[in-house]
Amino acid sequence: MTSTRTTEHDRALLAAATRGDTEGARAALAAGARVEARDAEGRTALLLAASADHVDTARALVAAGADPDAQDARDDSPWLVTGVTGSVDMMRVLLPANPDLTLRNRYGGIALIPAAERGQVDYVRALLRATDIDVDHVNYLGWTALLEAVILGDGGRAHQEIVELLVTAGATPGLADGDGVTALEHAERRGFDRIAGLLRAVR
């Protein structure tokens, strides 16, 4: 009987996190929901809240001891997903929970890499200022954040700013991908003149 009640409370917590119902989440926890309860895809309440950018709900879950590093079946975690959403507010809510900055997603990347790819300028800037995350981390594809910003970016203003932020933070422009091609060479091949100029200046 207790197990059934717990399951119901767990489901209530997950549902509340999904819709950003902070008071509902608190009520479910008070009723006995496990803060690390998972749905069928292995997602915790904090991951659900982070994915939907429900900042207040995430703050309540962190206060209740939720793990920012709990990974689901796809290797996403609350912390890693901030690099996808680009939510600076969510990043700041999770930082006091001491997320693992080296945690890898299913591509072997850390939070910085998808943010660089997606042109999340404000997030990249805030992350580099607030943490000592490895700017030269290499994912399973053989790409750093700098390489990914050039290879998968569009060469526009956002990616230009990200390249500048990464280089200023100490990213190594000469690191090549698995085929031996550097970010500068990729930028030149794609006609990203502004980015190529930034990279030539720091060679």
Rank of each mutant, 00 (worst) to 15 (best):
G83N: 13
A115K: 03
A149K: 05
A70E: 10
L141V: 10
D67R: 10
V88A: 09
I133H: 01
P114G: 12
L103W: 07
V135R: 03
L61V: 02
T102F: 07
D67K: 12
L128T: 02
L101W: 06
R106L: 09
A66S: 12
A73I: 14
A115V: 00
D122G: 07
P68E: 00
Q120H: 15
E148A: 15
D132N: 12
D122T: 10
L146R: 00
G86A: 01
R104F: 06
D89F: 05
D69T: 05
L112E: 00
P114N: 12
A115F: 07
G86M: 03
V135N: 05
A111K: 14
G65R: 01
A115R: 03
L147E: 09
N98G: 04
P68V: 08
V150N: 04
I133Q: 00
T144Y: 00
V84P: 02
L127D: 03
P96C: 06
R129S: 12
N105G: 14
Q120D: 08
N139G: 08
R59Q: 04
L147Q: 08
S77H: 05
P99D: 00
P96D: 06
A64P: 09
D72H: 08
N105P: 03
D122I: 11
T85M: 12
S87H: 04
W143H: 15
L103F: 08
T131Y: 09
A73F: 11
N139I: 01
D136I: 01
Q71S: 14
R129K: 12
L94V: 06
T144N: 12
D76T: 11
Y107T: 12
A66N: 00
D100H: 03
E117R: 15
V138H: 03
V84I: 13
V124I: 11
A73Q: 14
L103S: 10
L141Q: 15
D76N: 15
N105I: 11
G65L: 07
S87N: 04
R125P: 03
D89V: 08
T131H: 07
D134K: 11
D132F: 01
D122R: 13
Q120K: 15
Y140D: 15
R125V: 01
D132K: 09
M90T: 04
Q71M: 13
D134M: 09
Y107N: 13
L101V: 07
R104E: 14
T144G: 11
T82K: 09
I110E: 00
A97G: 06
P114E: 12
R74G: 13
T82S: 11
Y140F: 13
L141G: 11
M90H: 07
A64S: 07
L95I: 08
A116P: 13
A149G: 01
V150R: 00
P96W: 08
R92W: 03
G109T: 04
A70D: 06
V88C: 10
V93P: 11
V88I: 02
L61D: 00
D72G: 04
L147F: 02
S77P: 06
I113P: 10
V150A: 09
L112K: 04
P99V: 02
A116D: 13
A70M: 05
A70P: 02
D69R: 05
L146F: 00
A97Y: 07
R104L: 15
E148W: 14
G109M: 07
I113L: 15
V88G: 10
V124S: 03
D89A: 15
G83P: 12
T131C: 11
R125Y: 08
P99C: 04
R74S: 14
V138N: 10
T144H: 03
